Simulated assay, not measured.
Amino acid sequence: MTLVVLWFLLVAPMMLVASRPAQDSINGTVPLVMWHGMGDNCCNPLSMGGMKKMIEQEIPGIYVLSLMIGSNIVQDTTNGFFMNVNEQVSLVCSQLARDPHLKGGYNAMGFSQGAQFLRAVAQRCPSPPMKTYISVGGQQQGVYGLPRCPGESSHICDMIRKALNTEAYTDVVQKHLVQAQYWHDPLNDDLYKKHSLFLADINQERVVNETYKKNLQTLDKFVMVKFLHDTVVDPVDSEWFGFLKTGQAKETETLQESILYKEDRLGLAAMDKAGKLIFLATEGDHLQFTREWFNANLLPYLR
């Protein structure tokens, strides 16, 4: 296994660290904001730190902000499990609005759960404007299973699985467990729509927020990467905005077959018709890809 592949295996939850010098307004590059996934942090040299360095090498002078949620790496990692997602998104929106390097707009790339969090930023916080949004293994329709998470044998993963299977929609779990906030139970659709603090809101499951819809449609491109042999995301169809059909837990449907798309509750059908939705697939497990694949398939959207 190459070191580059190892970077991307660990590239789940991370944070915003600015690159220097910030010359985007001079050299014409578009700044990039990245958000890591579960169990990761902004700056690990074998994951997000390595990703940041690699992109800076490929696009000289680019300003890369790898989001850190909290005041240090330990807090950043822990907050990926236990900090209310809506609060995280609010903090990031404030940080981006204060960053002078981003005032002209930026591209965004989220890894695993960081991908749906960045989509919430696009929908809720249009200033500064997000241009291209790349979801790398993101769970756009949530998950209904957690077959594997970082540190599989650890107590924290066992605790999370138990809580999701029995108490995902209780107020305490919803407010304090990140993964519960994008837990999507097709067998308890009413509970999900009523009690999901995060995913049901950004996916327009209760009411249609026209502001969310308008803001998302301002994107130039919405790129979704699906890992064909993913053992972390269940169902993997969520990485292309598909999911399990309501009322059962075996048969899936594509985004285009869903009510969300047919009623165009989020503007995705209009974006699809305009050629703004890009569906990419790659072999490998969750977040496992090579530098060559990244350069060929994703780097063009960042230039």
Rank of each mutant, 00 (worst) to 15 (best):
M15C: 12
N41M: 06
I134G: 00
A180V: 03
L219T: 04
F111D: 04
T2W: 00
G39A: 05
Q217C: 12
G70Q: 04
A269F: 03
F222H: 10
D237Y: 01
G37S: 02
I160K: 03
M51I: 15
S25H: 11
V64M: 05
L197F: 11
Q88H: 01
R98M: 13
M159K: 13
I69V: 14
A18K: 15
V172R: 01
K53W: 00
M34C: 10
D171N: 11
D40I: 07
V33I: 12
G247T: 03
I202D: 01
L32I: 14
H286R: 02
V17R: 10
R206A: 12
P128R: 12
L96T: 11
Y133D: 05
K52A: 08
P150S: 07
P186L: 03
A281G: 09
L46Q: 08
F117V: 13
C149K: 01
S47R: 02
L6W: 08
S25R: 13
F294W: 08
E292S: 11
T246W: 14
F243S: 10
P31R: 06
S238V: 07
G145T: 02
G242Y: 06
H101D: 14
A281R: 15
C43E: 14
L255K: 03
G49K: 04
L228A: 04
Y169V: 05
A108V: 00
K221F: 07
M14P: 04
L65P: 04
K194E: 15
G284M: 08
L216Q: 05
P126W: 06
G114I: 09
L91I: 12
W7C: 01
C42S: 14
P31E: 01
R303L: 11
Y63E: 07
S135A: 14
N86C: 09
G247Q: 08
N86P: 05
E56W: 09
K226Q: 10
V64A: 01
R124F: 09
C43R: 02
L197G: 10
E152R: 12
Q140I: 00
S66K: 01
G114V: 08
E152I: 06
R265E: 08
G49S: 00
R124S: 13
N44M: 11
W7F: 08
L244F: 15
V89L: 13
N44I: 10
S19M: 08
V89Y: 00
Q139G: 09
H195L: 02
F117P: 00
P100G: 03
C42L: 08
E58Q: 15
Q204R: 07
A163Y: 03
D272S: 07
E292N: 06
I259E: 15
L9E: 15
Q204Y: 02
W35Y: 04
K273C: 00
A12L: 04
C43G: 13
Q256C: 00
L46D: 05
E239Y: 07
L32E: 11
V4E: 15
D99F: 03
R303C: 03
M51G: 05
N72H: 02
I160G: 02
L302H: 03
A120Q: 05
P300Q: 09
V11E: 14
K175T: 09
Q204N: 12
S135I: 02
T170W: 06
S19W: 06
I26W: 10
L10R: 08
A12Q: 14
V5P: 00
D189M: 07
R20S: 06
V5W: 13
F117K: 10
